[in-house]
Design a protein around this nucleic acid. Structure first.
Lengths: 338, 338
DNA sequence: TTGAAAGCGTTACCAC
DNA sequence: GTGGTAACGCTTTCAA
């Protein structure tokens, strides 16, 4: 590869001058600029980002830690960060973390080795205290979808509980009384929060949810199918279901229809997340929109701000909580009079 | 940040020794290893990957160039490359390229600056000749979903035409005679190849496709809906549709059903790609599986091989063509006797 | 088995 | 305006 030295030699100027041209430095004559640019062109010179990072101590990269890329939810997250990176002439360094503490640690470590001072991390496994420590070592770290009180100004998260309450109100507005729930048996936090919020709201309205109408399964299409199966098998009457996520909701709908129930005619179904498939299902899914891409952009901006130390009081003390938005589509409707 | 010097000083050994410990170098006494490891631990030392890349001239990264991340197809591509990267202790450097020549060039350039010698690129815009030149500069470059004869040993692509033929045969096996097509009006290559293959196969079977039964639209859900609308409005009879991709196929199905046609009862619909939504639609979509993640893994491996110069005759002369696989689900069935 | 020292390709400071 | 040069943090000879 040609280096800055080659360019300098052939252009007949010093290395320093070439560097100035590259960086639009001040005090360079037009003649030099043109001469150098011409030589760089001819030689196909490409500056070495590693060398630059070494001396400037700036890697010009934004890191993202996510469990995996194939889940559209995480792809959107990464995409949001990517947008901010591009706006700031930085590049995306992706580190997939899988599902274990060790691999989450390894993922963040790779970013540290690359001296990536700005990172957006989605971590559900590493314990709070460890993340708090990490934040000191890496000021430009922002957590997404996790709320840790001590570092809340570096956390961007969604109010799952409130989202569930919105869903509850929506279904009650539609006159539903016997409402079932399908929840996930994994991931401690989110499912629990959603279920809590939902039943709290029903309690408040004076029509508590019947324990027999809560089913747990894998958070997948198949999980939704089997949970709906169980619900049907229970013999309990219900006219609506609040489902943990969209994939399960679509699974539930397919089971319901296979058993002769119309959605939303006989049973209303509401999902959560508003991922891609929600718009492609039939009936189109009513769900709660989780603005993950927007949140990720916010997170990246915030990480940049923290890294640059431009923290003002307003930022360092404010919470960054998002609220899901109800998206009414076709899978919920007013209760049929029986 | 603590450096190798700090570690050396505190451990009371030379920089060279610390380096040897870090790299599991040969000829280091057990005592030194332990001493150094202890100090590294205490200091929370993290080696600087940029400095290492500079001196070793190896960046330990695999680059990926894709138009965007939110399309599940490209997310799978990136994910395939990521898997290979992890297996080889390398990291993913992602460069999104958007939809213009300039931004495709910029994307690859960022990778060059980072001295990323292994890259998998999805490019539909940059002209062949430019890519051929680029391949000389970047021996570890592999193109995915593009076939350029002069560098075919560095191309991994899918046989779109043959895929379309498989679809045609499937529909003919199901006794369909009047078959419609919905194609995309964008992206020069893929849609044309698919349509060509499809009509060629029907021609061979002696029942050429009627031009009135070919509609073009945006390659989206909405595009599929409007194309199906047009098809219905044409008044021409048809009992099956070959659709450019899954999103359009699902759009077409919704329009058909909204107009009282049952799928597959009245009309069979077959998609292409087998992306996530194909499994979530109702009826589940019959489609052609495009093994993009597997292809991406292959591409990454191949890029690694080319970079390491481990090219053997068999690799440098063979084609890397993939065939889509028919996935029979619920949206196609044998033609109803009218 | 260990250490000294010469780079790797840049930037940035300091003279001129 | 321009050029010389000391870092940046690390690997890798080469001697000892």
């Amino acid at each position: 590869m040609t280096t800055i030295k080659d360019v300098a030699r052939i252009a007949g100027v010093s290395i320093a001058s070439v560097s100035r041209v590259i960086n639009n430095g001040p005090k360079v004559s037009k003649a030099t600029i043109e001469k150098v640019n011409k030589v760089m062109q001819e030689l196909g010179y490409t500056p070495n980002a590693n060398a630059r990072a070494l001396v400037t101590r700036k890697s010009m990269t934004i890191g993202v830690v996510i469990p995996e890329l194939t889940d559209p939810f995480f792809a959107s997250l990464a995409s949001g960060v990517d947008k901010v990176a591009r706006e700031n002439n930085m590049q995306l360094l992706l580190s997939t973390a899988g599902q274990s503490v060790e691999s989450e640690r390894a993922a963040i470590n790779l970013l540290l080795e690359r001296r990536c001072q700005t990172v957006v991390m989605h971590s559900k496994i590493i314990p709070d205290c460890e993340l708090i420590t990490l934040c000191e070592k890496l000021p430009g770290l922002v957590l997404i979808n996790r709320h840790i009180e001590q570092i809340k100004h570096k956390c961007i998260w969604l109010d799952n509980e409130e989202g569930a309450k919105i869903a509850a109100r929506h279904l009650m507005t539609l006159k539903h009384k016997n409402i079932a729930c399908i929840s996930s048996k994994y991931q401690i936090e989110d499912p629990a929060l959603r279920l809590n919020g939902f039943s709290a709201e029903l309690n408040m309205a004076g029509s508590p949810i019947s324990p027999a109408l809560i089913k747990y399964a894998e958070p997948t299409l198949q999980g939704g199918q089997s949970a709906a199966q169980n619900l049907l098998a229970s013999g309990q009457p219900f006219s609506a279901i609040f489902v943990y996520n969209d994939a399960m909701a679509i699974g539930a709908i397919s089971t319901l229809e296979d058993n002769g129930y119309k959605v939303p005619g006989d049973v209303s179904v509401i999902g959560f997340d508003d991922v891609l498939i929600a718009r492609y299902s039939r009936p189109k899914l009513t769900t709660l929109n989780y603005p993950i891409e927007k949140m990720a952009q916010h997170a990246a901006q915030l990480a940049l701000t923290h890294f640059k130390n431009e923290i003002v009081e307003s930022v360092s003390h404010s919470e960054h909580k998002y609220l899901p938005r109800l998206v009414k589509r076709e899978s919920t409707s007013i209760k049929n009079s029986p």
